[in-house]
Amino acid sequence: MNKFFISLMLCSFVSPVWSAEAMLETFKVDTDLPAIARGVDDLMNNCHSCHNLKYVTYLDLAKLGIDRQKIDGWRGDQPMDAPLASLMSDEAAMQSFNLVPPDLSLMTKAREGGASYVYSYLLGYYNTPDGVTHNHIFPATKMPDPLGMSTTTDHAQREEIRKTAHDIVSFLSWAADPHEQERYRLGYYVIGYLVILTLLLYFVKKQIWSRLK
């Protein structure tokens, strides 16, 4: 019956995720502040003109430890608790792209493959010989190549773009789950405590049952 348990759990993981992930570039999210700070900077320059982050406020950025002067520069005269709303109205977006660019607050959680998907997507632009830009992760995309991956051939510059994408996705991962690190920290204590408690309960059980001999 152990098999039953394990396979039932496995059941929840057996999904087409794997086939999609095979194409994605492996990517490790950075959780340290400098990477996230660079990421939000790059995001404000490259993505924020079209994309909202409606669940992230300037105050959240300040609490995270992002440079206050930069935040004040981005927010202008909006209050601190305003969300990171894009500069583009939905109507203008509909006119240019025929769709509203999706909100980015949950992007790394909202796609199969998670952060790796977003990372691979940002770097997935290429030019066909006849000069048309495509994306091999999301062929139907309407977003123009934001980081210029398709037009850059220089190796050093491409590495630079990879780094930018890496920082942006690190920031987006934080934005999608701001309590993740706190959750892990608390998790270690909870599991440690439970292991001790379970050991104690095991000995109590053993002692009580030893009366039966």
Partner: peptide, 16 residues
């Protein structure tokens, strides 16, 4: 006592 010991094991898996 046996149920509580089992509960401990369950909680470890659940909390993971």
């Amino acid at each position: 006592s046996k149920d509580f010991y089992g509960l401990g094991i369950f909680l470890i898996v659940y909390c993971l």
